[in-house]
Design a protein around this nucleic acid. Structure first.
Lengths: 344, 344
DNA sequence: CTGAAAGCGCTAACAA
DNA sequence: TTGTTAGCGCTTTCAG
């Protein structure tokens, strides 16, 4: 049993008015279109009886606005990104827009077809997070006048908007915390060099070390996944004397840091912060749980989302708006994973 | 500087063929439409030069298929749902569909306008998770022939498809594990009675207790959020003698269980499993981390997602397909949060 | 196999 | 204010 959809024409017929009258009644900008209260009344009644809902697809076709924005993520494992998606969706909805989500498992997905999909759906804008944008995507979008803003990533391309935390500054903060506590053999567990976040945080960390005349003791990549993180952590500590292993670890994000802490404590039998201090980045909710009490560099996620949305809509609404890079300040949140300052 | 989109007509002109030829060349079902290799060639070349991409919106309007499915979530805090969303998106994309995400913060959002939004976007189907569907939504959708399948929820309405784990059986498993270990004062920390998952798991738990002639010692609601969970956990144990407090806790999902464990160990200073055994539900990745080693009832999330998608597409592709409730088996994953069986 | 023509459901001039 | 008309970009008969 096939149900035909009910159209504005159906409503018009039932209400005894023109189809335009129906259109005007359901126009999202109520003030602008003149409809007498009487007609409005009739239309609304007929619409309700028929269960009419305007067809957003048809509307988009004519208005050249889909009120859909593409949202690109590569994974939701890291709670920071899950939270970001949640906030992004809320913000979009609050503005009458909706998120069409593209989940691209970095490896699996072929990027070309995704680009193509995005373009075909006529999204009004594109928000990308946790994904290294192929320049292809950027070019194709900007060429077509689709604004894109990168969330928590940067790319050198100045044609793109981006919002990030001050990752370099954040990295310095982490180094500072560890150095101030008297740690001497500092290691960093990075993500992956292709990611600007990871690069910048490590860069800042090293910069601070350098400024203080300290040396980086060791480094490794955790590739943003738990398996490699655990592996790398073991390599740092396993079968090494206290003097030969790091006494401080800066992990590039909390998601990985939590895993590292687990390995350190439960597999390796080391104590935090007595044997090794650890600092993370992001401040996900788990970091605050007493079991971890992870000292970390907080990213102001709410403000990041707000800024991303603002940038995006500025460009959607005003095609002359210029791309912009907004960088928010990072902040150290001290908990119990860094040992107390040893008096000099 | 406004860029006009390039349409199939532009391509046709450039290629010196009819617009229909272009349409046929880009038809998603290559076999069905006859286009000579020669024309195809010309069209493709012209399209590439112009950077043409078919307009999915216009296509949807005529085919009455948007290839978009609405995906309803209320939060992504619980990693189980974040993971579910990730898998759902992948599955959808693999089938050439995309997810339009509706994030409805249970309280904030007004349900009517969301229903309206969903309907307006002409989604081909609806997937709902972690959300108690107002019957309104169900009715409106089914009335319009939009298939809906509920993920990890049920509702009595037989007109709706749903896929769940055997929550009742899972609840029994949890009780069995605790009883077999010799626990005597069993408490359950539920979610919220409005949620079928919570109700069913608790029901199964109680049923098993009853079958074994045991009594439920105590219960409380954690309302699926960490704050209330912590609160409830404290109430169970704080300032109570060993004999007056639970020696076993069944928490309705891992997300809450992890929080409960933290409170028990770090705030209350109790040991797990020596002082209290705990069992969770879901088997999120954190449960497997050695720090927690949470014994839990696993939901086969991959199969749940596959089943949901299968159900949804059966109904999308064949409007005669009947709604169905598929229930997958639950499985106990034993780790270290339940004390070893005391020999009788 | 190919092109012409008729819409999909809606908005936006334009007249009345 | 209201109705009439002309499309938005595409798919799909229907002739040729």
């Amino acid at each position: 049993m096939k149900k035909r959809r009910v159209t504005s024409t159906d409503v018009a017929r039932k209400a005894g008015v023109s189809q335009s009258a129906v259109s005007r009644t359901f126009s999202p900008w109520p003030t602008q279109s003149g409809v007498s209260a009487e007609i409005r009344e009739k239309v609304l009644r007929a619409a309700k009886e028929l269960g009419y809902q305007p067809n957003a697809i048809a509307r988009s076709l004519i208005t050249q606005r889909s009120r859909i924005v593409g949202v690109l993520f590569s994974y939701l494992d890291n709670p920071f990104y899950a939270r970001a998606l949640e906030l992004l969706c809320h913000g979009l909805q609050a503005r009458g827009y909706h998120a069409l989500v593209f989940m691209m498992s970095d490896t699996l997905q072929d990027i070309d077809s995704t680009v193509s999909d995005i373009l075909q759906y006529q999204v009004d804008g594109l928000l990308t997070a946790s994904v290294e944008l192929s320049s292809k995507l950027c070019i194709e979008c900007t060429e077509r006048g689709i604004p894109v803003v990168m969330f928590n990533r940067t790319q050198d391309d100045p044609g793109l908007s981006a919002v990030t935390t001050d990752n370099i500054g954040g990295g310095r903060l982490a180094a500072k915390a560890l150095l101030d506590a008297g740690c001497e053999r500092l290691a960093v567990l990075a993500g992956w060099e292709g990611a600007s976040t990871s690069r910048d945080r490590e860069f800042g960390f090293r910069a601070e070390l350098h400024a203080r005349g300290a040396e980086l003791f060791e480094r490794a990549n955790g590739n943003f996944n738990l398996e490699d993180t655990a592996q790398a952590t073991r390599a740092f500590f396993k079968d090494r004397n206290p003097a030969e292993r790091p006494d401080a670890l800066f992990v590039i994000n909390d998601y990985m840091a939590i895993r590292a802490m687990d390995v350190i404590r439960n597999e390796l039998g080391l104590r935090i912060p007595e044997d090794v201090s650890v600092v993370g980045f992001d401040d996900i909710s788990t970091a605050a749980q007493p079991t971890y009490g992870l000292t970390t560099v907080r990213q102001p996620i709410n403000r990041m989302v707000e800024a991303s949305l603002r940038l995006l809509f500025e460009q959607i609404e005003d095609s002359a708006a210029q791309p912009e890079h907004v960088m928010l300040g990072a902040q150290l949140v001290e908990r119990h994973s860094v040992r107390r300052k040893s008096s000099p």
